[in-house]
Design a protein around this nucleic acid. Structure first.
Lengths: 198, 198
DNA sequence: GACGATACGGAACAGCGTTCCGTTTTGGCA
DNA sequence: TGCCAAAACGGAACGCTGTTCCGTATCGTC
């Protein structure tokens, strides 16, 4: 993907250096958003983020047309890291199933430690679909690779697809703030249920 | 529980016959809500329900102080049926684990067939906590009984509690409308993962 | 230094759950 | 039967969202 907003191919696409204030605000915004997400969760009001960054809400929407785009930008690095860990784990692990389990743990940890992220991912109401889609687009191929390898090795059943497994894990991580609900253990159960019945 | 709103013990508690219009509106409201929930999901706007019933929103809140109370009232019968099925299945099933599996299927079916119910159950934002609590209060004891029986029989691991299992199943049922996500299969996996590693 | 392009800020809009209160309906009692 | 206080009604209004709009301020170039 291109970091610029334009994507039309062929045209010269005049670079038009980014204005200094725009860049400054965008960076302050990302920093502020990250801080607010930690403090108040991913569903924090846009106005709170604007206040934290010392800018107006209009400026937020200039840089990130939808709220979800801001969330994506804040977590992009961590999603990338998770995606890149997949092949590495597959190469390192004793078996594909073990690698899959470790990768899922990584993914679940990511969701559990970001207050409200899992809930936002399956949010039907506000425009969080883009967030959901981004996660899936980026991570489903990775998960598919692990899943296929584990299926080929005969360790797990082969009728489960990456998309539903990831959605399942994502769903299980909702509400992990409640000390009475151990999301990680539920994920562990789900992955255990994946193993071929003997 | 008492069907009347009053619960203070000892006092004569004057019965005060319910006014005819109040009763009529309450029944129209429940019917309308059920229809709207089927058509638009559980998260349908209160105003839509009021319009369907031909009454004002104020009247809704007179009968059901919180939105969740209305949802509870609409689904109360089905929750009761599910709760009562627990002991029956335990008595009927070949093993406690089989009974547990069937009961969880019942519960999952209930959630999956009510458009958006599962999502509402874990909703942190609006006042749906009462809904969540009602489900848990009524069903966790039933689930505990099944879970304990299956653990005692040695069929399943004994470190999983009813509350987290039910939350897990509830979470897995979110988003079951999407044809690419088979919530029932994920629940099946979770329950399979419960069985004692051999 | 001037000026056009760009970006900013926050008031304004739409949609939500919920509350409030002036108006209407009801049913026991004279 | 007619009266009238108590009960219930309806929907405007409130406070909270995300998002849009546009007059104003800033930037960078000439």
């Amino acid at each position: 993907m291109n970091d610029r907003h334009e994507g039309a191919a062929g045209r010269p696409a005049p670079p038009k250096r980014e204005r200094a204030d725009a860049r400054r605000n965008r960076e302050a915004l990302l920093e502020a958003a990250a801080a607010v997400f930690v403090r108040s969760g991913v569903e924090a009001p846009v106005r709170d983020i604007a206040a934290e960054a010392g800018i107006g809400v209009g400026t937020i929407y200039r840089h990130f047309p939808k709220r979800a785009d801001l969330v994506i930008a804040v977590f992009r690095h961590q999603v990338e890291a998770c995606a890149e860990a997949g092949p590495a784990l597959l190469a390192a692990g004793p078996t594909p199933y073990a690698a899959l389990g470790r990768w899922i743990d990584l993914f679940a940890d990511f969701l559990v430690t970001k207050h409200g992220l899992a809930a936002a991912l399956r949010s039907d109401s506000t425009g969080f679909e883009a967030l959901h889609d981004y996660f899936l687009d980026r991570l489903v191929p990775v998960c598919t690779e692990l899943l296929d390898a584990a299926a080929d090795s005969g360790e797990i059943r082969s009728d489960v697809r990456a998309l539903e497994l990831m959605r399942g894990v994502g769903n299980l991580c909702v509400g992990a703030d409640d000390p009475r609900y151990d999301a990680r253990r539920m994920v562990e159960l789900l992955i255990a249920g994946l193993s071929r019945p003997r």
